[in-house]
Amino acid sequence: MNKSELIEAVTNKSSYLNRRETKIIVDLIFNSMAAALAEGSKIEIRGFGSFKVKPRSARIGRNPKTGDKVEVPAKNIPFFKVGKDLKMLVDH
């Protein structure tokens, strides 16, 4: 399922929203989650899971082709922890 199929499904489930409105909502949800992560905030969605930002320190990497040393800068990566409910539901 991709985003447009998700928008479709949400529209079909709602009695009063049209596709254009649902698209705005779905985009808003994921954009605001992305913005929260960019700020370094934690996100907790009950029954679904939580997103956390994990820092990765800078390291010396190597270009696998040439063997040259390259500096890999420190970065933040998003990390998703599946909620208990969902974890069980997926496994069933």
């Binding site: 991709n2 985003k3 009063y16 989650m33």
Partner: peptide
């Protein structure tokens, strides 16, 4: 109330899809 219902519905559809073993792709997010 309506805003709450839509948000709830978005997450529950994602959940149901995953529960059925289908992947969910959200472009721009993951």
């Amino acid at each position: 109330k309506e805003s709450g219902q839509v948000v709830e519905s978005v997450f529950s559809i994602v959940k149901e899809t995953l529960e059925n073993g289908e992947n969910v792709k959200v472009s721009g997010f993951g």
